[in-house]
Amino acid sequence: MGHCQAALLADRAVLGVTGADARKFLQGMLTNDADRLAEGNAMHAGLLSPQGKILFDMFVAARADDFLIDVARDKGAELGKRLGFYRLRSKVEIKEDPDFKVAAVWEGTPRLPEGAIGFADPRLPALGMRVLLPGSASVSELGCSRADEADYHARRIKLGVPEGGRDYAFGDAFPHEALFDQLNGVDFKKGCYVGQEVVSRMEHRGLARKRIVPVAGASALPASGTPVTAEGIAIGTLGSTSGAMGLALIRLDRAEEALAKGATLKAGEVPITLRQPEFARFAVPATALSA
Results as ranks from 00 to 15, higher is better:
Gly76Ile: 07
Gly76Phe: 05
Leu79Tyr: 01
Gly80Gln: 05
Lys81Arg: 15
Lys81Glu: 14
Leu83Lys: 00
Gly84Arg: 09
Tyr86Trp: 06
Ser90Tyr: 06
Lys91Asp: 15
Asp97Cys: 13
Asp99Leu: 04
Phe100Glu: 02
Lys101Gly: 04
Val105Gly: 08
Glu107Asn: 15
Thr109Gln: 14
Thr109Cys: 02
Pro110Cys: 11
Arg111Met: 03
Leu112Lys: 06
Leu112Thr: 13
Pro113Asn: 06
Gly115Trp: 08
Ala116Ser: 12
Ala116Pro: 01
Phe119Gly: 07
Asp121His: 07
Pro125Arg: 10
Leu127Lys: 09
Gly128Arg: 13
Met129Thr: 06
Leu132Glu: 07
Leu133Arg: 12
Ala147Ile: 10
Asp148Lys: 11
Glu149Leu: 05
Asp151Tyr: 08
Asp151His: 12
Asp151Gln: 10
Tyr152Met: 08
Tyr152Trp: 15
His153Ala: 11
Ala154Leu: 07
Ala154Lys: 13
Lys158Arg: 15
Glu163Phe: 01
Glu163Asn: 02
Glu163Gln: 12
Gly164Arg: 10
Gly165His: 12
Tyr168Gly: 01
Ala169Arg: 12
Ala169Tyr: 00
Gly171Glu: 04
Asp172His: 14
Asp172Thr: 14
Asp172Pro: 00
Phe174Asn: 00
His176Met: 15
Glu177Thr: 14
Asp181Cys: 02
Asp181Arg: 02
Gln182Pro: 04
Gln182Trp: 06
